[in-house]
Design a protein around this nucleic acid. Structure first.
Lengths: 364, 364
DNA sequence: GTGAATTATGGAAACGTTTCCAATAATTCC
DNA sequence: GGAATTATTGGAAACGTTTCCATAATTCAC
């Protein structure tokens, strides 16, 4: 039936009417006699007519497209969120243009620029530095509705949906302390690149301080293979009383479990490990990984809903962060602290600790 | 500096020239005096002018946009491929519209329809049934260049890039047999949904048959939790001599390792497990997972390159499948078969085997 | 049967571009 | 100095749509 692309003009010609009429029929926007209506419909069907959305966008001044900017898709957390965005958008007749910035601010800015050039109706994004982002500035300037995900901007002017990283990390700390882990460490990759890691570290360490336990070490590692093992080895040299690790994400947590094994430590008998994010594999590996499961999919979904309802006239984006619920998921990587750790408690803080890079600047 | 969107017309006005001149300057398409050139450039900078790509697309009849259709982003394999597509596209000034079909043919068709409506210049996609796909038919009808990834269509007319699943599975079989695993099983999820699983099963079992070992069982499981354990339990009831499992993807392989533990079997001492895909976590878990690592990222990348070079005039898509190299990656989940299995070898095939759903229809 | 109200219809402008083409200005040549 | 050539330039059409507006056709009330 259909061959190449046909336009509204072709349909009009075949139906023997004007293009205005075709538009009215196909959009049900305006009066049409039932008779012409049928002729138009028949003609459209015969030609396999589909609207050219580019022409439509130009005229309507809205593209029915949502721009998405995430750091990467390798991290399942973002992949899930994007999936949520895509589904929700698609359910409302919107398409998604996907861009990735690889944690690079310059790239973020460029990506937003091209999204704007494509006339996206709104943007869902995660940026490196939500409180000082050229990309966000661009969106503001052009008055394009946008909603952050994962990020928790401090200036609460901006729409955002995420989880309360502070509270979640605090909960992890509580769970650990309840099990007798008074000496813990926080392990992060690219700590400087991620405002989320920072929030988690603060929530984690503040809980420990409140309980008057030693503040957890902050261990920052590269993705370089072997780096993690060395870092952990050093940790145990300096703080042999450490009984628990809290990793800033699940992949890293898995890496920790593996590195600990390599160092001759048993998980969870010698050391417990807790991750963050709640990716699917956490339940598939052995030991299963204790983690905080976060609703990544829903985050994307929710942000998209907000955006779309803001598109309806008189709709406005809520200002401020919406926090979605998280859930602590225990797992085999988490056990009670060994009794000897009771000794560790209250031990004078070793002087070597000062060599460990505490990030006081992030403390609220 | 910039406020709201400005158009080429605004620039022309400010620069005191016609819009045609502005277009020529900004696109370097046509002669301009150095003097007006500067005036235009200054005006554009002052207004923060950015092209409206919708207007451009309409006039140029190409959108600088590539459509992408994958089953899902939850599978890291597809996430990686999409990332490859996105990067490569972006490097050539193309954007990516992402759609997901959740393995549903109807959704695939709809997705392609909307991609076509958006006037994408080309499509990179993975479909459920590449040899009988309404979605692909649509692309053919409209003469939109497209390239399959992961799929290996039988009718070799279509551009596609993937790995040779048959050969890869055959290699796995060889490795297993070399280690003395003469009785193996193939475990798949959604076997019917994935042409890739089928190819792998065939490659796997043909190798065994060639060596005159018993044909591996085919075990098809749901995602339902517990299902895997039951299926494996049944397998060992029927075929206690089984010493190796080949899972159709890594996530499933991890699930197998876990289920085997639950059944009291040790990996790899009692049973070896090999996965497929080579996802990142395979190296992070313990035991590390033996797997076939496939270049998902490159697949996306390559497909996109093909597409983009086909866009240049006189460029045409290569017809047929391009196979990218894969690599067998050994891991701790794979060990030599226990000696008792030597007995298993050559044992008469138990009659109970007939109850196992061999998929003879897929045999080439 | 006439005027008024109602209904259906198509022409044309507009959205932001690119590009053909004609027109103007600048240069060269003899 | 005038004609021929060349270098710049802007008007206008076109891409595929939507929608305003005016027209034409129908219906209605009297």
């Amino acid at each position: 039936m259909s061959a190449a692309k046909s336009t509204i003009k072709d349909v009009a010609e075949l139906a023997g009417c004007g293009i205005a009429t075709v538009s009215r029929v196909l959009n049900s926007s305006g009066p049409t006699s039932v008779e012409t209506r049928e002729r138009v419909l028949a003609a459209a069907r015969m030609l396999g007519f589909q609207f050219n959305e580019v022409g439509r966008s130009l005229k309507n001044q809205r593209s029915k497209t949502i721009g998405v900017l995430v750091p990467s898709l390798s991290n399942p957390v973002f992949a899930d969120a994007v999936q949520g965005i895509q589904q929700t958008a698609s359910a409302s007749g919107y398409n998604v243009i996907l861009t990735c910035a690889n944690y690079d601010e310059k790239t973020e800015e460029e990506a937003v620029t091209t999204l704007l050039a494509k006339q996206v109706d709104g943007v869902v994004l995660t940026v490196s530095k939500p409180d000082n982002s050229r990309a966000l500035q661009l969106l503001d300037d052009q008055r394009v509705p946008h909603c952050l995900i994962f990020n928790q901007p401090i200036e609460a002017q901006r729409a955002a949906v995420g989880v309360d990283n502070f509270a979640a990390a605090s909960l992890v700390a509580r769970k650990l302390v309840e099990l007798g882990h008074f000496n813990a460490a926080f392990v992060a990759v690219q700590f400087a690149q991620s405002d989320r890691s920072a929030d988690r570290y603060v929530g984690f360490s503040e809980y420990y301080e409140t309980c008057e336990h030693p503040r957890p070490h902050l261990i920052e590692v590269d993705y370089a293979p072997g780096d993690l093992e060395i870092a952990l080895f050093n940790l145990f040299e300096k703080s042999p009383q450490t009984t628990a690790l809290f990793a800033s994400n699940d992949m890293l947590a898995l890496g920790c479990v593996r590195a600990l094994r390599a160092l001759g430590k048993s998980v969870p008998n010698d050391i417990s490990v807790v991750g963050f994010d709640g990716i699917a594999v956490a339940d598939l590996v052995s030991p299963t990984l204790a983690t905080v499961s976060t609703p990544c999919h829903d985050m994307g979904s929710k942000a998209t809903q907000l955006l779309i309802s803001a598109f309806q006239e008189d709709g406005a984006l809520p200002t401020g962060t919406i926090s979605l619920p998280f859930e602590f998921r225990s797992g085999e990587s988490l056990g009670p602290a060994k009794s000897k750790n009771a000794d560790g408690r209250g031990a004078t803080r070793p002087s070597a600790l000062s060599a460990t890079p505490f990030v006081t600047k992030y403390i609220k």
